[in-house]
Design a protein around this nucleic acid. Structure first.
Lengths: 354, 354
DNA sequence: GGAGGCCACCCAAACGATTGGGTAAGGAGT
DNA sequence: ACTCCTTACCCAATCGTTTGGGTGGCCTCC
C-alpha cells in the first residue's frame, strides 16, 4: 500500500553503495567526476561497476540534497513582461536551449511590465535560490537592478538594456537607422513612428536610431509624429488611429518598433481606406514569423531573438563565475517586403481623412 | 572578502533560534503553522517574538532543505509544444497565476511537438523532483501517458486531451459545431477545413465537430477538402496554397482550426486574388488577440485559454492529493467578424485560379 | 629492509528543515 | 501527598550529497 498519487522511491547513493558493498562517498566521487576516476577515488574496475549499477538502477542525484550541500541549484530565473509576447517567448526558447546545454534549469515568470510584480517575481526566484537571474523586462530608471547588485545577486539583462549593466540585446539603434535609410531611399519624407513604451529601451533606441539617421539624411520628424504605444496589436491599432486623427497630412511611411504594433496600425490604416504598401508604407521590427505570412507581407527588421536568449545565458554564466562581462548588441538586418515596396514619391501625399 | 558574484548568506532557522535562545525545532513549529501556535509548540508570547524576528531578519526557508526532508518540492512541471505559440503561452499564464496562488512554482519547457523531446523534458522535470506535471503537448497514441501512470507520476493534460486521462481543454467539438452552424447559416455549402496536426486532439476534435454538424445540416465535406497543417502562419499558408491548387471549385468558406493557420491561409487567398470576407469566408480558432486587430478582422472561436491553464493546475493539485478528477471541457464562443460576414450565396463560386 | 609513496578506499561532518518523541515545571484533582 | 495533565519547550534522527581528511596494505627505491 503506497501513498496515493505519489510514488517511486528514488534510488540513492546509499542504495548503490550498499549493493556494491562500498562506501557511499566512493560512489559519489566516481559518479561525480564523469571522465577520470576522481583523483584516485576508486579503481577503474570499481568505477566501472559503480557506473553500470547506477545506470541500470536509473540513479539520478537528488537535486535538493545536492543544492543543500553545494549552495548552488543549477537553476536560473527568467523574468519577462509576458510570454504571450512572441518576441520574449522566442528569446526564452533560446534561453531554455542554452541553459539545457550547460545543464541548468530555468524558471520563467511574467511580470506584466509592472514594477511591483517585477520585484515580487524576483523575490520568488531568489527564495527558490536560483543561481542567477535573466531580466527581460527592465524599465528605464527602475532601481531593481541596483538593489540586486547591492545584494550580490548575479544577473544579466536581456531584450532591453540599462546603461551600466550587462545586457544581451538587439542593436536597436542600428535597426532604427536601417529603417531610416530604407524609407529615405524610397523617397519618403513625411514619416511617423509608433515608438512603443517609453520605459523600454527597445522602442526608445529604435526610435532614436531612426531619428538620428533621418536627421543625418536631412529629414525631420516632428515631435507629434512620435507616438508611444503598447507592444501589441491593440496598441498599434490605437496609435494608428491617433496618428490618422492628427491635424495635417497623413505621413507616407510609418515605422512601428514592433511587428504587432505594425499589424495593429495596418488595421487602422486599412479601416481608413488606405492601402498599405501603396498609400502608406509600414515597417515593423523583429521580423516575427507572422511578418512574412501576412496578407500584405510586412517589411521588418530581423533581430536574432533566439541568439539574444542564448547569449544572455552565456553572459550570466560568466557573471556567476565572478567575471566581468560586456554587453552584447546583436546586429539586426532589414527584410523588405510588400508593405514598403512602393516608392514614397509615388505615394499619395494628401489623403482625405474620414 | 566574499566569494565573487555570489553572496548574502541566507538566515536560517538556527540563526533565529540562537538569537532567541530557544531551540530550532520550536522556531520551525511556530513558523510552520501560520495561524495557531502549532499544538502548543510555544507560548503566544514566544511565538510572537519568533515571528517578529523572522520577519525583521528576512527569513525565508531554504526550499531544498525543506524538499529534502518532506519529499515534496511545491514545484510543478509544464511541457508545451512551444511557448512561441501564443495559445500555449497564454494557457501558461493561467498556469503560472494559479500555481502562484497555491504557492507552487512552475518549470516550463518546450517539446517542439517531438515525441523524443517530450520524454526527455519529462525526465528532466522528474529529475528535478517536481510534484506533478502538466502536459500541454500530448500526442494521440503516444504511450508517454501510460508510462507516467505506471510510475505513479501525478499529471494532468492541458490543451489537448487523451481519452482516459484527466484534461483541461476547450470543448473543441462544440467549437467546430459552432463554426458549422455559422457558415451554414450564411449560405455556404462548399467548405474546406485546415485541420491542424493529426496527432493533436484540438484540431481533430474541431474538425470532427464541424463535420458532424455539417452532416446533420445536410452538407458534405469531401475528404480532399480536409487538409492537415501546422498550427502556425506558415502551415496555414502552405495549406491555403494546396487548397487553391486542388482540382474543382475553390470553396466559399474555410475553417482553419487555429488563428495563425487562418492568417497564413488569408495570405494565400489574397495572393491568389481573392478578397477574404467577400470572395471567401475564413474562420479561425482561439480568438487570439490578433484576430480582432487584423486588417481584415478574423471570425474566430474564443476559447478561454487562461482559464484552461488555471483549471489544469486545480486538477493537478487534486491528482497530487490522490483524488480522482474528471476532465473539464471549457465552453467556446463564436465571435463573428469581417472575414466571414458576407453571405455564402453571394460569394463567387468559380474563381479562375492562377 | 626501512622509508616513503601511492592506491583504493572509508569516516564523519556538514547543509537546513521537519517531526516523533521526550521532559521538567507547575497546577489541578482527590 | 500522590497522580495526572498541560504547557512550553528541547532532543535527535533524518532526508541525500559532498568533501576534507584519514588509513591500511602493497610496491618501489636505494
Amino acid at each position: 500500500m503506497k501513498a496515493p498519487g505519489r510514488g517511486r522511491a528514488a534510488v540513492t547513493l546509499k542504495d548503490l553503495a550498499a549493493e556494491l558493498g562500498i562506501h557511499v562517498s566512493t560512489v559519489s566521487r566516481v559518479l561525480h567526476s564523469e571522465t577520470d576516476v576522481a583523483r584516485g577515488a576508486a579503481s577503474t574496475e570499481t568505477a566501472q561497476r559503480v557506473r553500470e549499477l547506477a545506470k541500470s538502477r536509473g540513479y539520478s542525484p537528488d537535486p535538493h540534497a545536492t543544492s543543500l550541500r553545494t549552495r548552488r541549484t543549477r537553476a536560473i530565473g527568467v523574468i519577462v513582461p509576458r510570454l504571450s509576447d512572441l518576441v520574449l517567448a522566442t528569446m526564452y526558447e533560446g534561453v531554455e536551449e542554452a541553459a539545457a546545454e550547460s545543464n541548468h534549469s530555468t524558471f520563467v515568470m511574467n511580470s506584466h511590465d509592472d514594477l511591483d510584480e517585477q520585484r515580487r517575481k524576483a523575490e520568488i526566484m531568489l527564495a527558490r535560490r536560483v543561481d542567477g537571474l535573466i531580466l527581460g523586462d527592465v524599465h528605464a530608471g527602475s532601481n531593481l537592478v541596483d538593489d540586486l547588485t547591492a545584494r550580490h545577486v548575479p544577473f544579466v539583462l536581456m531584450n532591453r538594456r540599462y546603461p551600466g549593466f550587462p545586457s544581451s540585446t538587439c542593436d536597436d539603434t542600428a535597426g532604427g537607422r536601417l529603417v531610416a535609410d530604407h524609407l529615405w531611399d524610397l523617397g519618403h519624407r513625411s514619416v511617423a513612428i509608433l515608438a512603443g513604451e517609453p520605459y523600454a529601451s527597445t522602442g526608445v533606441d529604435r526610435t532614436a536610431g531612426f531619428v538620428e539617421r533621418w536627421h543625418e539624411l536631412g529629414g525631420e520628424v516632428p515631435g507629434d509624429r512620435i507616438l508611444y504605444c503598447r507592444f501589441d496589436t491593440e496598441g498599434g491599432r490605437k496609435a494608428g488611429d491617433e496618428l490618422l486623427a492628427l491635424k495635417g497630412d497623413v505621413p507616407t511611411a510609418v515605422f512601428a518598433v514592433n511587428d504587432f504594433a505594425a499589424i495593429g496600425a495596418m488595421g487602422a490604416f486599412r479601416a481608413a481606406g488606405l492601402v498599405v504598401g501603396q498609400d502608406i508604407a509600414v515597417v515593423g521590427f523583429n521580423d516575427t514569423s507572422l511578418a512574412a505570412q501576412l496578407p500584405i507581407p510586412l517589411t521588418s527588421v530581423r533581430s536574432p531573438m533566439v541568439e539574444i536568449g542564448r547569449t544572455a545565458v552565456g553572459m550570466l554564466r560568466r557573471v556567476m563565475n565572478g567575471e566581468d562581462v560586456a554587453s552584447v548588441r546583436h546586429a539586426p538586418e532589414l527584410v523588405v517586403r510588400e508593405s514598403s515596396e512602393s516608392a514614397g514619391v509615388s505615394a499619395r501625399r494628401h489623403v482625405p481623412t474620414g
